[in-house]
Nucleic acid binder design. Structure first.
Lengths: 237, 237
DNA sequence: CTCCAAAATTGATCTGGGTCAACCGGCTTT
DNA sequence: AAAGCCGGTTGACCCAGATCAATTTTGGAG
């Protein structure tokens, strides 16, 4: 899905009662700074499937994801796709070198984000090293996840990949909505395949196999972990 | 290789004529700061194969690589290994969250590094946001490389992986020692395989195939690119 | 130099996951 | 409610790369 209408509301919302106040970049700001910060960002919405930014685009905007899920991916010239991550509320997007995004980002379902213009945001950081430290912290956390994902892509079997994905995704949702054995999967099978370096058929077959063995149950819009311990054993961490 | 003797010299060397002065973290420091910085670090040496730090070790030291090459890797419980990167002079190692390394690092051949104790280094950064910005820059650059590598691991064929590796490695060496079609490969075939998510046999066969086709020549301790354009075509960027 | 061990290459064979193709609901459109 | 579509599932078959098994080459050590 290409360009489309981006709804922009007047900035009624207050940072102070923002859903991601405690976990996002802004967690490093005190009450006074937050008031000033409020004027820098504005809330924007993206429809399901809409592209928020593309690889190689010049970065003029940063995003702080508030609601919804995004897929972050890179394409090869011949169309092969690797999803490098899924973004969830609290994730900060747009940091890069050379002023260009190095991956593309699409909304999966409706998305709300807090949008910042690069220049004023950069100025705001300038004399607030604690915010810079927070951004650095987020970058290092992502780097650690990226390395874990390299191990998964390079050295794990299809079964291990799928099991590790289910556990990892459940874990991330747990820290947002609380722990649960019912795991919603808003992304398509193709998305999961492109995230795990597999084909859609292999992902589908692996799900059915896990279900046949009574380890998971495939439900509408997600899966339910019937035997989490078994899944953990499969993921072989 | 497990613990071994770490040679420590008195800190004769001056940062000001350090080989990586211009490219490493310290490139963000002015002459005055550099004098102070000099007292924080000390030069350490590692023998070939020696482990500098291990995954899960508590981080007490940071390293700024001065000479030599290191392999950075993660192990699965059953011994499968994924090399997440090779470190070259100018690379900064040790940044992490939760105070633990999230990968292991071995010397490939003799290595010299500038070693910093975590606490005083952290204090030094404290009131020098430009150094923090430099560290952030390096983290973001690594993140970008990590994402490129995910694409390679998840979506590229063995031939493409090997070709992309040769070009990428040549590129990195070029920015250190100047461009050349003769590419030294200090790491073993097993290291290359574990970096590319392949087996040693596949790497070896791919090299021989490229040589048979007159694209490269396998020389002692490396390869020579006879037809760089062909290699680039294979890497299919 | 000779001997030994580790690294690399090469060959033969096997298999996990890809490819190709058919099919099955559930939604939307008319 | 028929038609069409899209996402997902299932089956049959295939192949890139893994595995298993010898060599061959390289690099020290004595």
């Amino acid at each position: 899905m290409k360009p489309s209408v981006v709804t922009i509301e007047p900035n009624w919302q207050l940072c102070s009662d923002c859903a991601v106040r405690g976990s996002a970049v802004c967690s490093s700001l005190d009450a006074v700074e937050l008031r000033e910060f409020e004027h820098l960002g504005r809330r924007v919405h993206f429809a399901s499937g809409e592209t928020v930014f593309s690889e190689e685009d010049i970065t003029t905007l940063f995003y702080n994801l508030l609601e919804g899920v995004m897929r972050l991916y890179k394409l090869l010239p011949d169309g092969r796709r690797q999803i490098v991550g899924f973004a969830l509320p609290g994730d900060f997007l747009g940091m890069n070198i050379l002023g260009r995004h190095n991956f593309s980002a699409d909304a999966i379902g409706a998305v709300t984000a807090c949008q910042f213009a690069k220049v004023p945001f950069g100025r705001f950081i300038e004399d607030r090293p604690h915010l810079l430290r927070r951004i650095n912290e987020l970058a290092i956390r992502e780097l650690s996840q990226a390395r874990d994902h390299m191990v998964l892509l390079g050295r794990r079997s299809a079964d291990e990949k799928v099991a590790a994905f289910l556990l990892g995704w459940r874990e991330r949702l747990a820290s947002l909505k609380g722990a649960s054995d019912t795991v919603p999967l808003p992304m398509s099978r193709q998305d999961i395949a492109d995230y795990l370096g597999l084909t859609i058929e292999t992902v589908s077959r692996t799900f059915t196999k896990l279900e046949r063995h009574g380890v998971i149950e495939i439900i509408h819009g997600g899966i339910s972990l019937l035997d989490p311990a078994k899944v953990e054993a499969l993921a072989a961490a």
